[in-house]
Simulated assay, not measured.
Amino acid sequence: MTAVDPHDVPLAERDLDALVPAWLEWSEVADELGVTVAKVRTMIREHELAAAVPRPGAGQRVPADFLQDGLVVKGLPGLLTVLHDQHFDDRECIAWIFTDENLPGRPIDALRENRGSEVKRRAQSLGF
């Protein structure tokens, strides 16, 4: 049996629970950001954050790495907007952000290290 290269699996079908090391429930995100759960819902709807169901029966969660020092990681909302403009849904956005494709490391690592401009350029080139 031949092993499947994870990069050959479409983004929407990737195992998010395997890609993302830690997940937060919306109430945990609200506590960390000092906002209400309703505000977290709004942030997800407006693409300031992304949420997905990491495994069957889990309910929607937000990757813990999307938050840093009590704030949304710098550059994440802009990146999510670019990816949504490329017709990605939240699940595909999360998969792309946590997959090591072309950057040295995963896009989320670059964002957390304040190297977001290269990540955004890569995302903008996806449509070409």
Rank of each mutant, 00 (worst) to 15 (best):
I94V: 07
A51Y: 02
V37C: 02
E48G: 13
R14H: 02
P63E: 02
M43Y: 14
D65R: 06
R45E: 05
H7S: 09
E46H: 13
N114I: 10
R91N: 05
V20F: 04
D100W: 13
V9K: 01
A3M: 10
R91A: 07
T99S: 04
I108T: 00
A50F: 06
V53E: 07
V4Y: 10
E13Q: 11
G59L: 04
R14L: 06
V53T: 14
V9G: 04
N114Q: 11
E118L: 14
W26K: 14
I97W: 04
V40R: 03
R106V: 03
T42C: 00
G116C: 03
W96C: 05
H84E: 14
E113C: 06
W23Y: 04
Q86V: 13
F88D: 04
G70H: 00
G78H: 10
I94P: 02
S125E: 14
E48Y: 11
N102I: 12
Q124T: 13
H87L: 13
P56N: 15
P10L: 00
R45D: 14
L76P: 11
L24E: 08
T2S: 14
E118W: 15
F128C: 08
V62C: 07
G34S: 03
E113W: 12
E48R: 14
N114W: 12
P107A: 04
R41N: 14
A51L: 09
L111A: 12
P104Q: 11
T81A: 10
